[in-house]
Each structure stands twice: as C-alpha cells, then as structure tokens.
Design a protein around this nucleic acid. Sequence first.
DNA 1: TTGCTCCTCACGTCACGTGAGGTGGC
DNA 2: TTGCTCCTCACGTCACGTGAGGTGGC
Lengths: 257, 257
Amino acid sequence: MMLTIGQLADYVGVTVRAVRHYHQRGLLPEPDRDASGYRRYGAQAVVDLIRIKTLADAGVPLARIGALLGAGPEEFGRAIAQIDDTLAARIRDVEQQRRRIADLAAGDRLFLPAEVAGLLDRLRQIGVSDRSIQMERDGWILLSARSAGQAAAMANQKREGLDDPEFRRVYLGFDQAYGWDRDDPRLDGLADAMVAFAARHAPGSGQEQDQEPGQRQDPSVDPVAMSLLSSQPGSLSPAWERVMQLAEERSGAAASG
Amino acid sequence: MMLTIGQLADYVGVTVRAVRHYHQRGLLPEPDRDASGYRRYGAQAVVDLIRIKTLADAGVPLARIGALLGAGPEEFGRAIAQIDDTLAARIRDVEQQRRRIADLAAGDRLFLPAEVAGLLDRLRQIGVSDRSIQMERDGWILLSARSAGQAAAMANQKREGLDDPEFRRVYLGFDQAYGWDRDDPRLDGLADAMVAFAARHAPGSGQEQDQEPGQRQDPSVDPVAMSLLSSQPGSLSPAWERVMQLAEERSGAAASG
DNA sequence: TTGCTCCTCACGTCACGTGAGGTGGC
DNA sequence: TTGCTCCTCACGTCACGTGAGGTGGC
C-alpha cells in the first residue's frame, strides 16, 4: 500500500521529474526503495508534496519553500499572510498588464507622458498633418527619455501657446509648407511671420515668461526648434530647409540692424 | 539628440542587459554606433522597446513577441485578444492560489477528496481519537492516490455505515482499545463484537449491498481492514495486534464450524 | 513478448544576471 | 583625475524538460 513516484506525481499534479528535483533540492525526503530500487511513498509524502506544489505554484522560490516546511505554525502563518499579499499585488499587476496591452493595440498613449499626449491631441484637433504629428511625437519621446519632467513642463507650455491664434497660424503655415518647392514665393511671407512672432516673444520684448535656468530656448514659441528636436536624417524637406535659412538671415539682419 | 542604451533602458523600465538581449534575439534592431562605438537610439527604438516590454511583462515568450512585431494590425489585434484571455485566466488562477494557500494554513482539506474529508469530519463528530483520525487520513490519502473515484465511493459508503449505532460502538471500542495491555480481558468482548458485526454484514447474510466487481472487501463495515490501509510500521499497538488475532481465530472457527 | 514505468546521469531551455577585463565621456 | 557609462565575451541561475541508455513489473 505504498505509492510509486508516478502515482504520487499524478495524484498531486506534478511531473515525475519535478518530484526527483524536489528530492535533489532537499525539499522532499528521499523515501525507502523497494526490492527493485524503486522509490515507495507513504501518505506523508503526499502531504509534503502538495504543500510544496501549492507554494511553488504561488511563485515561492524553492529555497524559501524549504525554509517554510521546517518552520513552526506561527512563522508559517506569517509567511502565508505575506505570500497572500504578494498574490493580491500580482492580481493588481495582471489587471494593469491587461490595460497596457489594450493600449498597445489602441494608440501611442503608452509611449508618452500624459502631458505630451495631451499636446499631440491638441495638435490633431487644430488640423496639424499626421506627418508633423509623427515628428513631434518622436521629438517628445526622445526629450522625455532624457528628462521626463522637463518634457512634461515644456509640453504644457507649448499646449498653452497654441491658444494664441497667431502662433497657430505660424505653426500651421510651417506644417503646410513641407511639400512646397524651395523657391515657392510664399516661403518669404512664412519666414517673415516666424521672425516677427519670435521677436515679439523673445527676451527683451517684455512679453516672455520668467525663463528657468538652463532652458535656453522655448520651443513653445518656436516651431522650428521643435521640429528640429527630431533631427532624423531626411526629416527636413527642401521647403523647410529654405524657410529656416530665410528666417535665420532675417533675424540675423534684425539683430545686427 | 539620440539616446544611449542606459537612457533608453531607464525610460522604458528595463535593464541595459535586457536591451542587449533583445538585440541578440533579433527583437530589437541593432542601431547605428557613435564615434565611440556606443549604440545610439532614436524614437522608434523607444516605441519598439515599450512594445517588447509590455508583451514580455504579460508573459508572452520572446520568440512569439518577435513574430507579433512583424505581424499586420489584424493579426496583432487577434493576438492581443488572445493574450488578454490568457491574462484573465491568470487572474482566476491567482485567485485560486490564494484560496489554496489559505487552506494550507487551515487544515487538511487540500490533501483529500471532498468525500473523504466529509468522512473524517463525521469521525471527529462521533468522538474518534485524533490518532485514529490521522491513521484514517493517511490510509485514505494512499487509496485516493491509487484510485480517486473508488476512494470517494468507499468513503461515502463508510460514512453512511456510521449511521448504524452498532457500527459506531464497534468502531469506537476498537479506537479506545489502542493503549490497552495485550492481555486486557476487555479485548475478548471487543473481538466478539467485531466478528458478530462482520458476520451480520458478510456476503450471504442477506444484508449486504450489491458488490461492485473487483471490490473484494468493504471497509465501510470493517474497521480492522480500514486501519490496515495505513500499514505504517509501528501503527499497530499490542492491543490492536491482539484483538485482530482473536478476531481472526474466531471468524476462522465460525467458518469451519 | 510487448509496452509501460522506473532508474541515473547529463545536457538543454528560458530570460536574462553577474562578473571579468577594458575603454570612452563629463 | 575620479566615477559613471559603455563595450564584448562568457559563465551562472532558476526550475525543471528532455533525451540517452538500461532494467523491472504486469
């Protein structure tokens, strides 16, 4: 009336190899052998193995299970309570994983701080092209990776800047100019508008906010700088290169004039 | 404005070693190196790595993640739905694990089929000693491991048998005799009672139920056989050995007379 | 006799962790 | 100059899985 290793393993719901592994690790005492050298198990082995399996299923490392099996009931009880806490936390973790894989299929909320996601939503809302939004997203991702806090603050600032109709006009004009020829006559007007807007919000104009130290330029009022955040090769079109060149010439002339 | 491997890893919440591992496995493309031979990452790498981490956290094997990253949105969506099902099942698993580790601290419900647990409860209720209940438990554990269905049926049968006051008397008498001397005069009366009860329920007495094939003896009417189920060395006391010897003599004499 | 179970090595797997020994960036 | 980050091997870890080669039980 003793059990073979296969009967024991099947009843408890583990593999034969697992039982042998628990012997090797010293979790389950090696039983006596029968005449053929087969291990033969009694009821205590069933009880011990179910304990081991139950704890192992709960994710308790085998080394800790070994310590727990030798512990008194009060220490065992405390350990059980702590393991239960871990399992409760695991349930919350899995619930969050479900939300996150749902986000994965949905959009790009997952890749950005909430403030940046809010800015991108605002850009979509005012009619910015998908191409520019993609470039903004990539730029903000890189900025967030280097300094999440600073990126969030700057994104909020830029989103507020978009409440200004003139900033929206300049930003959308630059966005739409992407595919123009580099000698398109409208680029001059666009460069003028950008320089004029930047001048009105530049230091000394009396309109800027207090600058934080180390924050040399403020992308919330400078779509050119913002677009440069994602300086992937090829991201600048001929028209954009041209309008930036024109703007630089004019602001240089204004500074020296 | 490109990221080092450490900036990338910190932002996404993985180790630098994990990023290198994903390169090795081909999940994340190797980026270009800077002048020092350092890897430099763009925004796409952040997006890719968050995808990998989110799926890996959800328990998706890396080999499958590799296939998913190359899949179209419809296949990706189906995979996400299937992963979500797996996570929902995992939550139910963890909830069951919590119940099982609670049982582990509580009692021995975990080690026995419900029918056997019910029988043990009944034995406790009618006043059987802890020692005998322990022996019953061990016997039923071994029997359940060899044939769970048969053990359950036999346990139900025995529990019903305990509704008979005479069976209870014989069983409790045998239980209490454990610590008696082997020449205690009360053992004769106990053996008599056991033989008389067994004879009344033996085949041919007109009281037995239909016997199932292969079920040679019925422990529900034979506490001696039941106690023998757990034939651990040393489990039989001198008094029990003696009373079984007496009972065997008498039933042998009855059979031959 | 055949198929199933058991035995003991011993290498493989999965997703990285952890030094070992050396170089570049601030 | 010091400490931090980066680089490439390459072995270690955890809980077993999976043959390899052989024997015993029904």
